[in-house]
Design a protein around this nucleic acid. Sequence first.
DNA 1: TTCTCCTTGGAAAAGGTTTTCCTATCTGTT
DNA 2: AACAGATAGGAAAACCTTTTCCAAGGAGAA
Lengths: 338, 338
Amino acid sequence: MAVTIADIAREAGVSIATVSRVINNTKPVSSDLKNRVFDIIEKNNFKPNELARGLITKKTNIIGVIVPDISNSVFGALIKGINIVCSKKGYTLMVTESGGDINNEIKLLDVLADKKIDGILFAGINVNHKLITEMQTKDYPVILVTQEASDGEGIMDTVVHDNIKAVYDATKFLIDNGHKRIAYIGGPKIDYSSGKKRLKGYKLALEDAKIKLIDSLIEQGEFSFQAGYLGMKKMYEENSVLPTAVVTGSDIIAMGVIQFLTGAGVNVPDDISVIGFDDLEFSTYFKPELSTVRISYFDEGAIAANELIKIIDGENITPQTHYVPHKIIRRSTIKNIN
Amino acid sequence: MAVTIADIAREAGVSIATVSRVINNTKPVSSDLKNRVFDIIEKNNFKPNELARGLITKKTNIIGVIVPDISNSVFGALIKGINIVCSKKGYTLMVTESGGDINNEIKLLDVLADKKIDGILFAGINVNHKLITEMQTKDYPVILVTQEASDGEGIMDTVVHDNIKAVYDATKFLIDNGHKRIAYIGGPKIDYSSGKKRLKGYKLALEDAKIKLIDSLIEQGEFSFQAGYLGMKKMYEENSVLPTAVVTGSDIIAMGVIQFLTGAGVNVPDDISVIGFDDLEFSTYFKPELSTVRISYFDEGAIAANELIKIIDGENITPQTHYVPHKIIRRSTIKNIN
DNA sequence: TTCTCCTTGGAAAAGGTTTTCCTATCTGTT
DNA sequence: AACAGATAGGAAAACCTTTTCCAAGGAGAA
């Protein structure tokens, strides 16, 4: 049988209340007594039962995390960032996987609620209105990370990278390197998804540079190697004149694109330049080494966790969107054709 | 205020005990009454407080996970496998990261105990005697995964791949392809670590094929790209006659090896064949496509989780080591020189 | 000296369940 | 008709804390 606070109280010859006060330092106790109690606690290796404690304090020091895919390295980095700050501040993580399915996400919101978590960090694929209203009925704080809410700006506290700006910068980087005929192969066209935002960044950059948009130079599909390969293949077959550069929605897509190109006898970067997105650890090892937009999902996680803990601690914070900076990383897949 | 079981009892005009029985189906209740209570529960969206419940049943339906590195894709796959079966069986995961540090691991064992988890899945780097004894003082079951205990075979229930056999097979595969001068570049030489086991598999295979061991063809270091690169570099510089094939301790190491080789003008696989270990998703995208030993960390996680839940459910299981099968995957980095 | 206020500590309620005893009713058997 | 045994439900203890309310004693002020 585990030792309880009552055992300590008995052995110290004081009341249970006093022991509790010593532990939590919640009311003055004479230092003599305090030391005696501490010694007895130490000796018996007593640890307060966190279930009993949570039952009354309504705090568990557990933070829930919902991600679409645990084994995806993007979310691996995110969770690592979250964990670094949470563990430092005495929180433990409850990690769940939604598969990106909204019904699953809603269910997980409840599963975690039942565990009495203190708050949730939510990484969704498509954070739509239904999801938002669902979150707002809960009695714990939720912070969006990785992905903004589809509408209702300013309602949810959010930590993301600026998808529009990032792809804008990537595209502009290619333009600055002399490219004019620039293709885009990106993620799915779900409303308000990051895929859509990234496409917008691409369009904006072309617009600002007064470059005309060519529909046949835009492909959208999954965030996968396969989709990159197929997207590039389609574009290759349907266009008599190829682009000189392609902006992609992720490193994985970029790799698929390059795979096709190389197989088709098109040299990267001599014939076509390619830029990825994310900067996976692996992108350095890829041949040719992938130029990309570096996103620190680790930082996103850390910042979001910090923000959530502030809210849990009762700081009154007005919801806002925090942008974590991105950075263009030049490696071997971009050629300056100026 | 959340609705409690007392509220339901009052509204139904029955005792709290009855409501509890209806919920848990723990004693016969007339079906009329049962339906009435269920309706009221539904209407009020009542969910039993899991803290209060856990306090008395001593069960939380939480499983703790300890891994060295959350963002490492090996552990990502492991956790995904664990989660698939746990979530299906009504358990939620509490994931923690140890950094592979033993003191941290010991601390986490307690942190999770304080959360009253029902059991732990432990993936360590070096599961030594100290750790084992520590685990055995706890009042929850622990299953080792990914990594066996250093000594005391048969004490801990364990789910791993057979490191010795896997590298043995990899080495033998090269031998069968006509190679005789085979190098090994693997993980660190910590006692009882997987690195050491893999080296043993390599040695055994050579021995069985009556091939003499050459010390200068063995390098051990971190499980990293860098270490692979440097290990191969050292070997390249110190040996006047190069190996025709190299067995590596991981895909990442293999990539480092190939990177160096390619840079030094040595062609893979024409001049030197290389085999990796793990079969990361990425190894297909690597150029040349990496031959490797496929380990399913996903399966390891799933099997281990199943095993743990059995134990939690009270099945009396004698500790044993479960081996999940591996598989040689031939891609483009091995040449048959027969 | 008397009164007030602060300090230290205890008793018991509260938090929300499950479970152990009981009791009363009903069914079926002889 | 009488009795055993099954069935249905309630009261209260138990799980282990924190916290509220109260009391006693001591210090300082008038």
